[in-house]
């Protein structure tokens, strides 16, 4: 690994200042993707600005407006074990408890995961299905506007994710068909049903990253059950093919995993 400068920011504004003055600087959250990427020489930052000394970024709080606010530096293990998350959004706690492996979950963070925006990461599907809002040091961004493409978000260069606000949705679950080695999603489906709408978000499969499966949403709004999506699949042309699964197989998996996710929501009632 190439050497770099290392800073531990003591405030968010210090972190912003440090990445502003050095174009090659990157933020370091849990580092569970960034460090392996740097070891492979695929990222060569001139400096890393660590966010771990900012305790205000790790809080998990139930807000007065009914939303659940999770700090960007909350690690996956803390989200999975949080009493507040387990009570208010148990599907999200379950998702966090199935990311990667226990060692990665002790280090990897919510903010790091969504800012990295890996097309096979789990959290983006949950944020999109739940219509979550991403808070940064500058503004609030709806999940639908945040995830732009492969490893691409709406974040500006000097913008830092501070927390994510999740609406408390009783009927929410995430289902993952994992790669057995990496635990990344070959297909992951998040389903949220509110009084007004049903949202289905898919990760691991889209050629442009996480996406909403609107055809399924329309059917499920009429009738919420696994059979409502019998016979439909997303167009394989918009899905990716790789060594693990063809686009056609992913299309089929999306239908199957969405149906299973819906069944798990109904079974929990």
């Amino acid at each position: 690994m190439q050497d770099f400068e290392f800073h531990r920011a003591q405030t968010i504004s210090e972190a912003v200042h440090l990445i502003a003055e050095d174009e090659g600087a990157l933020l370091l959250a849990g580092g569970q993707t960034l460090l392996p990427t740097m070891k492979q020489g695929l990222a060569t930052p001139s400096a890393l600005v660590a966010l771990r000394d900012l305790p205000e970024l790790t809080a998990i709080t139930a807000r007065g407006d009914g939303r659940l606010e999770i700090g960007a530096m909350a690690c996956h293990a803390d989200v999975a074990a949080s009493t507040i998350v387990r009570q208010r959004l148990p599907g999200l706690a379950a998702l966090a408890g199935k990311i990667a492996d226990r060692h990665v979950r002790n280090r990897g963070t919510l903010g790091g995961s969504i800012a990295n925006c890996d097309p096979a990461a789990d959290y983006p599907a949950a944020l999109l299905a739940l219509n979550a809002v991403i808070a940064t040091n500058e503004r609030e961004i709806a999940a639908g506007d945040f995830f732009i493409g492969l490893f691409t978000t709406a974040l500006e260069r000097q913008e830092i994710v501070t927390s994510v606000h999740f609406p408390t949705v009783a009927r929410f679950a995430y289902g993952k068909f994992s790669n057995p080695a990496s635990r990344y999603a070959i297909v992951g489906t998040a389903v949220a049903k509110t009084a007004d709408e049903v949202r289905v978000a898919v990760t691991g499969a889209g050629a442009d990253g996480v996406f909403r499966w609107t055809e399924a949403e329309a059917r499920l709004s009429e009738c919420f059950g696994p059979r409502a999506i019998n016979g439909i699949e997303p167009d394989a042309a918009m899905l990716n093919s790789d060594i693990h699964a063809s686009a056609e197989y992913r299309a089929s998996l999306i239908r199957v995993m969405t149906a299973r996710t819906i069944a798990s929501i109904l079974a929990a009632e």
């Binding site: 460090l35 392996p36 070891k39 771990r52 492996d101 060692h103």
Partner: peptide, 29 residues
């Protein structure tokens, strides 16, 4: 493995298991 897959390097950091090949020493001050 040195690629964060195998877990042979697991140690406890503040009481929690981590892969020490995926943590910077300077982050552990």
């Amino acid at each position: 493995c040195d690629t964060s897959q195998c877990g042979a390097c697991v140690v406890h950091l503040n009481g929690r298991s981590v892969k020490s090949c995926s943590v910077l020493a300077v982050a552990c001050d």
